[in-house]
Design a protein around this nucleic acid. Structure first.
Lengths: 333, 333
DNA sequence: ATGAAAGCGCTAACAG
DNA sequence: CTGTTAGCGCTTTCAT
C-alpha cells in the first residue's frame, strides 16, 4: 500500500505538492508538475489514508447511526435514506444496533466518539436521560434524533398522533362504533403517540375509551394475531380493528380469517406504515403511510447542516397519509 | 476533547504509562500508579482516539459491508448477523449500498480502502470481474463473499438449487404435473440457482421444461403478481406455482384470488425465503427457509479468522428447509 | 510555484 | 516499573 511519500518520490516533487494536487487546493501548481503527480498516483494506485487525514483535520466524513435493529423494515428504510444523502455528500455511516437496550446505547455512543464521527443520528430508545453523560456532551451539537419530540436535540418527526386519529376517523366515518386498538410498546414515543391518536379520535366522535377494546402487542405479526384473538373473543366484539403497525394488522387479519370473519364485511382492519406487502394482503390493507425514507433523508440533511454550521430547522415534521384499500372498503379487492 | 497527554499530565506520569494501563499490556504497572491514571481518565472522561491508534497499528477494528440495498429484508437480516458477531469481537461495520451497480461497487471498494478497513464482506452483484482492479488487490486476502460460488474468495453459501428443487418436488409429490415458475433476475447467482433447482426437479420427475411455464420478475410483489397473471392466463394453466421469493409469492396469491382461484384447491403456491409475514398470509405460505442471519454470522466469523490468520473454511454451505403450510396443504389454514 | 518542518494522538522499541 | 523517542500518513504554515 503506497503512501504520499511514494508518490512524491516517483513524481520527483515534495509531499506538499502531492497533497496540493490531491486537494486541488487554491494553491496553484504548475500544470506540468500536476501531470507528473497525477501519473504517479495512477501508476501506484495511490489512495490517501483517511485515518491520517482525519487525525489531522478532525473530520472523518463518517457519521454514526444508532438504531434498535437494522433487520426491522422501518429502520432499514430510514438508514437507506440517510445513506442516499450521505453518499451525495461523501459521508459514510457506521451502524450500531442497540435493541433499545440502555447499556448498548451508551456503549455505542462511546464507541462512536472513539471513532471520531462527525455526527450522530439517533432513532429508537431513549437518549434524553443521557444528557449528563459525558459521551454525548462531546457530540452534543452534532446529533439529530428521529421520532422523538422531547426537544433537546434537533429532530425529524412524524405526526403519528394525527395519522392514527385519521385512521380511526376513517373507521368511524364508515359507521363503526366499536373500534378496537392493537397497540405497540408504550415505552416508545411512536407507540404512545399512536395510542393517543386512537383515543383522541374516539373522543372526537363521542365514543368512550374502553379498556376492553385495547390490547398491546410488540409489533410482530404474532402479537397482532394474539391481540386480535383476544379482542375478537369478547362477547361484544369490535366491528373494526386498528393496529399500530402493518405487521400486527397482518396477524389480526389472520386471526379474523381463522375465526371465519369476512373482511371487510364482518371486520374492518386498518394498519400503519404501509409496508410493501400491505397492498398484497387479501383483501389489501388499508393503512397509514409513513415516509420512512424521507425521515432518513431529512435527518441526514439536518445533520450535514449542523456539521457545516449552516442554518437548520430544529424540528422537521412529516405528515402521514391514509391509504384506503380493501380491508375497510367493499369496492376494493 | 482530552487526549492521552492530558491524562498523563493530570496523573503525573508519562503518556507511555497511560498507554500501558489503557492496553493492560503485559507490562506491569504499579497498582498505585495505575489507580492514579484510571482516576485521571475517569475525571477527564478520556477516550483513546481510534484514528491515531489505527494509523499506527494498521488495524481499525472496522470492516466494510457491501450489499445492494439495506432496505431489502434479506440483506438487512444478513447485516444484523454480521453485526452480532462483530459486536462480540469489537468490530464495527461501515455499510455501502450499491444497488448492484458496477460503478458504485467500485467506488465502495476504493472508499473502504481509504478508510483502512480490516476486511470486507461482499454480497450481491459481481465482484469477480474486478480482480484486476487494484483496489481489491489491497484487500484481496480479507474479503468474504456471501452467495456466490465462483470461488476466488472464501464464501458463505446457500443451497438454493437444492432448496428450489425440494420445493418443486413437494409440489410433484402432491400430484401436480404442471408447475409454473416465477423467477428472479438471472443475473444474480441466487436467481439463476433457483431456476436450475426448479428445472432439475422437473427433469427428475420426467416433466419437460416448458417455456410457457416460466416467467421472470424482479423480486417485488408487483412483479410476482404480474407474472402470475400471465402464467394463470394461459389456456392450459399450471396447477401450482413456485416463486423464487416470498414477496413474489404474495403477489401471485393476490393474482390468484383476484381470478377467483382457491388456494390450495385450485392453485398451490410455494415461496422462498420464509420472511416473517409468510406464515400470516391467508392461507399461510409454504416456503423454503433460508438462514439469512446465519449467513451473516458465518461470513463475519470467517472474516475474523481471515484477519487473525486463523485456519478457516474456504466454503461454508448452508442448507435450506422446506416449511409446509396452508398454501399447498389442505390441513393448514 | 515549490519545499521543509511541525504536529494531529497514539504505541512500541529502547533505555534506565 | 517508568520515561524518552521515533514515527504511522497526512495537511498546513512559513520560507524560498
Amino acid at each position: 500500500m503506497s503512501n504520499i511519500q511514494d508518490v512524491a518520490a516517483r513524481a520527483n516533487v515534495s509531499i506538499t505538492t502531492v497533497s496540493r494536487v490531491l486537494n486541488s487546493s487554491l494553491h496553484r501548481v504548475n500544470p506540468r508538475t500536476r501531470e507528473r503527480v497525477l501519473k504517479a498516483i495512477q501508476e501506484l494506485d495511490y489512495r490517501p489514508n483517511a485515518l491520517a487525514r482525519g487525525l489531522l483535520m478532525k473530520k472523518t466524513m463518517t457519521i454514526g447511526v444508532i438504531i434498535p435493529d437494522i433487520s426491522n423494515h422501518y429502520y432499514a428504510e430510514i438508514v437507506r435514506g440517510i445513506q442516499d444523502v450521505g453518499d451525495q455528500h461523501g459521508y459514510n455511516i457506521v451502524l450500531q444496533n442497540t435493541d433499545r437496550r440502555q447499556e448498548r446505547i451508551v456503549k455505542s455512543i462511546y464507541l462512536l466518539r472513539e471513532k471520531i464521527v462527525d455526527g450522530v443520528i439517533f432513532s429508537g430508545g431513549i437518549i434524553h436521560g443521557f444528557e449528563p453523560l459525558s459521551a454525548l456532551k462531546e457530540l452534543k451539537d452534532r446529533v439529530v434524533v428521529i421520532g422523538r419530540h422531547e426537544a433537546n436535540f434537533p429532530a425529524v418527526l412524524v405526526d403519528n398522533i394525527g395519522g392514527a386519529s385519521q385512521a380511526v376517523q376513517h373507521l368511524a366515518d364508515l359507521g363503526h362504533q366499536r373500534i378496537g386498538f392493537i397497540g405497540g410498546p408504550q415505552a416508545s414515543t411512536t407507540g404512545a403517540d399512536r395510542l393517543r391518536g386512537y383515543q383522541s379520535a374516539l373522543a372526537q366522535n363521542g365514543y368512550p375509551t374502553e379498556a376492553g377494546l385495547i390490547s398491546l402487542g410488540n409489533l410482530t405479526p404474532r402479537s397482532g394475531y394474539e391481540a386480535a384473538r383476544k379482542l375478537l373473543g369478547e362477547r361484544d366484539r369490535p366491528s373494526a380493528l386498528f393496529a399500530a403497525n402493518d405487521l400486527m394488522a397482518f396477524g389480526a387479519v389472520y386471526a379474523a380469517r381463522e375465526m371465519s370473519l369476512q373482511i371487510p364485511e364482518d371486520l374492518a382492519v386498518v394498519g400503519f406504515d404501509n409496508i410493501p406487502l400491505s397492498s398484497y394482503l387479501v383483501p389489501s390493507l388499508t393503512t397509514v403511510e409513513i415516509p420512512m425514507h424521507s425521515l432518513g433523508v431529512a435527518a441526514m440533511e439536518t445533520l450535514i447542516d449542523l456539521i457545516s454550521r449552516n442554518p437548520f430547522e430544529w424540528m422537521r415534521w412529516f405528515k402521514t397519509r391514509l391509504i384506503v384499500r380493501g380491508s375497510t372498503a367493499r369496492n376494493h379487492l
